[in-house]
Amino acid sequence: MLDDRARMEAAKKEKVEQILAEFQLQEEDLKKVMRRMQKEMDRGLRLETHEEASVKMLPTYVRSTPEGSEVGDFLSLDLGGTNFRVMLVKVGEGEEGQWSVKTKHQMYSIPEDAMTGTAEMLFDYISECISDFLDKHQMKHKKLPLGFTFSFPVRHEDIDKGILLNWTKGFKASGAEGNNVVGLLRDAIKRRGDFEMDVVAMVNDTVATMISCYYEDHQCEVGMIVGTGCNACYMEEMQNVELVEGDEGRMCVNTEWGAFGDSGELDEFLLEYDRLVDESSANPGQQLYEKLIGGKYMGELVRLVLLRLVDENLLFHGEASEQLRTRGAFETRFVSQVESDTGDRKQIYNILSTLGLRPSTTDCDIVRRACESVSTRAAHMCSAGLAGVINRMRESRSEDVMRITVGVDGSVYKLHPSFKERFHASVRRLTPSCEITFIESEEGSGRGAALVSAVACKKACMLGQ
């Protein structure tokens, strides 16, 4: 009897593995994704193909990295998701002549009506938060230079001027797309009239992360975010950046690689679950690469896999709870928690219980395998993109072996128990001629924006502006 049951459990697990095998990517698959990513990057950089390229390769006008001589107080704003952060950054000489960066910050959550109302409502709310922060720190009387981390696709015309191309991540505030974001912020500050600010720089969160990590390690020339969304930036040779005049030196390019796949480059790798996630998203047909990796989508992918296993009578005796059938019910943090389970399955059992399920031991094991399959594919897909960037940098610099540091931020990278190990191992397999160091950014977005502002202020002083 026991043997029969054991055989049935083994057969069930084997069927589960057959279904989950769809998520496995072979090294040849990853090399294919990497080569296609490089081709799209090239198209994004070139003037004649930029418009139709899915990977936009947006110039950021960040050319210099901090040298350690900029000092002063800077205000930093960070808008990239449902939370908005205001930070005071003091850049100065530390002990023994070292450079020191001290920060104080406060988080504000953005109400739904500000995210989806008008641009005026959104930026009025942001300036209200700045006003509140300055009151708390008794700094209303000071006109501070301000660095703005704005983590949406922007076409820069200068370091302090950028046109919002399109909202992502659930934002829909009308009247912002096609307009200068810094102008919208300046107008809102003017409307309030109770404080003055000098907006000197606007950067993407990947750029802010790279600059913040450069402060720790001067070989950091790539910034990457794996959180709600997924994106990367890197220092490109100016001669390859056709959208900006000049051939000397390097400029940081914001790849906006989340949109890779929007022209069909990933079609052969998309599964039924991916198509369902895409169809029910706020932007169907867009940001397809990001939807395979980002935390906004990972939990939902797992939920759809679990429903398939229920329908195949391989999980929960073929019956799903009402909660499990509800879109968004299986949160991405559950994926991390399930994979963090120590082996007694308590954590998995508790999560499934909150979803109205009474799982068996085998159910718990199957749910864990589903989570591992989805998150491992995410790590491997992400590795193909980064390997594409790094191999490109090595080739354009004609280096036999390139040493490089990548600064990384984002909740999936930082909080998932195995993502970074799987990701690092896969990147290294795909970049055999590179020695890569990964560092995690601390308060990256805010500190990085302030350091970019410090560079901009120093330049302005040198130019006598």
Results as ranks from 00 to 15, higher is better:
Tyr273Trp: 13
Thr332Asn: 06
Val222His: 00
Arg369Gln: 13
Arg63Lys: 14
Asp262Ile: 06
Leu315His: 03
Pro359His: 04
Gly162Arg: 00
Leu2Glu: 09
Ser321Asn: 10
Thr49Ser: 12
Ala201Thr: 04
Tyr289Lys: 00
Leu79Gln: 04
Ile366Lys: 08
Glu331Asn: 09
Met462Arg: 15
Lys104Tyr: 08
Thr354Gln: 08
Arg5Leu: 12
Glu120Gly: 08
Asp365Glu: 12
Ile366Gly: 07
Glu272Lys: 13
Asn166Ser: 10
Ile439Val: 07
Leu30Pro: 09
Lys169Val: 02
Thr255Val: 00
Asn179Ala: 09
Ile19His: 03
Ala449Ile: 01
Cys252Arg: 01
Asp344Leu: 13
Glu442Thr: 14
Ala114Glu: 09
Ala384Gly: 08
Thr168Ile: 02
Cys129Met: 07
Ile130Gly: 04
Ala456Lys: 12
Ala456Trp: 14
Gln219Tyr: 14
Ser360Ile: 13
Val200Asn: 01
Glu399Leu: 10
Arg368Asn: 09
Ser445Lys: 00
Gly246Glu: 01
Cys129Gln: 04
Val222Gly: 00
Ile110Phe: 05
Ser131Glu: 05
Arg43Asn: 09
Thr332Ala: 06
Glu9Gly: 10
Tyr125His: 10
Tyr61Cys: 01
Asn204Ile: 02
Asp217Glu: 13
Glu216Gln: 13
Phe269Gly: 05
Glu67Gln: 08
Cys364Trp: 05
Gln38Lys: 06
Leu276Ser: 10
Leu2Cys: 09
Leu357Lys: 06
Arg327Tyr: 14
Ala449Trp: 00
Asn254Cys: 04
Arg403Pro: 11
Val207Lys: 03
Ala6Arg: 13
Leu45His: 02
Thr209Leu: 06
Glu279Asp: 07
Asn283Thr: 06
Glu95Met: 10
Phe260Ile: 00
Gly147Leu: 09
Arg333Ile: 13
Val335Gln: 08
Asp205Thr: 00
Glu17Asn: 04
His50Gln: 14
Ala460Arg: 15
Lys346Gln: 13
Ser426Gln: 08
Glu435Asp: 13
Glu242Leu: 10
Met34Tyr: 06
Leu415Tyr: 12
Val401Ile: 08
Gln18Ala: 13
Ser127His: 03
Leu352Phe: 07
Tyr125Trp: 01
Gly444Asn: 02
Phe269Cys: 08
Ser151Ala: 02
Ala114Asp: 10
Arg333Trp: 02
Ser336Tyr: 05
Lys459Asn: 15
His218Phe: 11
Gly407Asp: 03
Glu27Trp: 08
Arg397Lys: 15
Lys15Ala: 14
Ser54Asp: 08
Met34Lys: 11
Ala53Gln: 05
Val33Ile: 07
Arg63Pro: 12
Phe74Gly: 06
Val154Arg: 02
Gly249Pro: 05
Val452Leu: 15
Arg192Ile: 03
Cys252Lys: 04
Cys434Asp: 07
Ala21Arg: 10
Asn350Gly: 08
Glu300Met: 06
Ile404Gln: 09
Ser426Leu: 11
Asp160Gly: 01
Arg429Gln: 10
Asp124Ile: 00
Phe23His: 01
Ser54Phe: 06
Thr376Cys: 13
Phe438Ser: 08
Gln138Thr: 12
Gly92Phe: 08
Leu164Asn: 02
Arg394Gly: 09
